[in-house]
C-alpha cells in the first residue's frame, strides 16, 4: 500500500510539474517512421517507432541503463495528448509508456519485468524552446524511481526550412535517489530537414549525443 501511495504521489508530482524527456517530438506525421538514438549520463537508447497517426506512435526501444547496468527492451507507445498551435509557436503534451523486460546481467537470463511512464510538456517558437518532463521507471526487484528533466534552448539565428538550424541549450536532470541528484548538460542542437543531432557535455564529465532521423 505504501508502495502504491508513493507511486501515486510521484505521478501527481509529475503531472503538476509537467515533467519531460530529452526526446523531441516522439510522434511523427501519419505514416512516418522515426529513428532516435539517445546517449547521456544515465542511459544509451535506440528507439524506432512508426506513427499511424499524428497523435500516436508505436515502436520498440532498446536501452542500457547506467543505474543498474541492465539492458531493457520495451514496446513503447507515444501519445500526443494535446497540442496548441499558435500563429508563431507550438506547445505539446506527450505521454510515453514502455512495457517490456530488463536483462540485469546482460546474458539473457533472469529477465525481469520492466516498464516506464513519462509525461512531458514542451513549448517552442523559432527562437526559444522550453521542455519539462517527468518519468517513473520500474523494474521488478528494484524500487520505482522517479526522475525529471528540464531544458531551455535559444536559437542565435532563425533559418529557413531546409537550412541548418542551430540551438544552444541547457538541460538539467534531477534524479532524487542519487546522492548528487542534479546533472547539468550544456548542449548544441543542429537541425536540418529530417535530421536532428545534439551534442553536449555534462558537469559529471559525461557526453550527451542524441540523434533523430525521420522518414
Amino acid at each position: 500500500m505504501k508502495y502504491t501511495y508513493r507511486g501515486y504521489m510521484y505521478f501527481l508530482i509529475l503531472i503538476l510539474l509537467l515533467v519531460s524527456s530529452s526526446q523531441t517530438r516522439p510522434v511523427s506525421y501519419p505514416g512516418g517512421w522515426t529513428v532516435l538514438s539517445h546517449n547521456d549520463a544515465f542511459s544509451q537508447a535506440l528507439h524506432v517507432h512508426y506513427s499511424p497517426t499524428a497523435f500516436h506512435s508505436l515502436g520498440i526501444r532498446q536501452e542500457k541503463m547506467e543505474k543498474d547496468n541492465s539492458h531493457r527492451t520495451y514496446i513503447q507507445n507515444n501519445f500526443l495528448l494535446k497540442r496548441i498551435n499558435a500563429p508563431h509557436s507550438q506547445a505539446n503534451w506527450y505521454l510515453k509508456t514502455g512495457l517490456g523486460y530488463a536483462n540485469p546481467k546482460g546474458n539473457g537470463k533472469d529477465l525481469k519485468e520492466a516498464s516506464f511512464a513519462e509525461l512531458s510538456w514542451d513549448w517552442e517558437d523559432r527562437r526559444w524552446f522550453v521542455m519539462l518532463a517527468g518519468k517513473l521507471d520500474y523494474r521488478r526487484g528494484m524500487p520505482t524511481t522517479a526522475m525529471s528533466s528540464y531544458r531551455v534552448g535559444w536559437a542565435p539565428y532563425v533559418a529557413d526550412y531546409g537550412k541548418l538550424h542551430t540551438w544552444i541549450m541547457l538541460q538539467a536532470d534531477h534524479r532524487p535517489d542519487d546522492s548528487d541528484s542534479v546533472t547539468l548538460t550544456p548542449l548544441l542542437r543542429f537541425f536540418k530537414g529530417t535530421q536532428l543531432f545534439e551534442i553536449g557535455y555534462s558537469d559529471k564529465d559525461t557526453l550527451l549525443i542524441n540523434f533523430i532521423w525521420r522518414f
Binding site: Y29, G32, A86, P87, E124, D125, Y161, H165, G193
Partner: peptide, 15 residues
C-alpha cells in the same frame, strides 16, 4: 498555425 520547425514542414510535405 503551429509551423515552427523543419519537422512540421516535412510533415505537411509528406502528407
Amino acid at each position: 498555425n503551429g509551423l515552427v520547425c523543419d519537422f512540421c514542414a516535412r510533415a505537411l510535405e509528406k502528407v
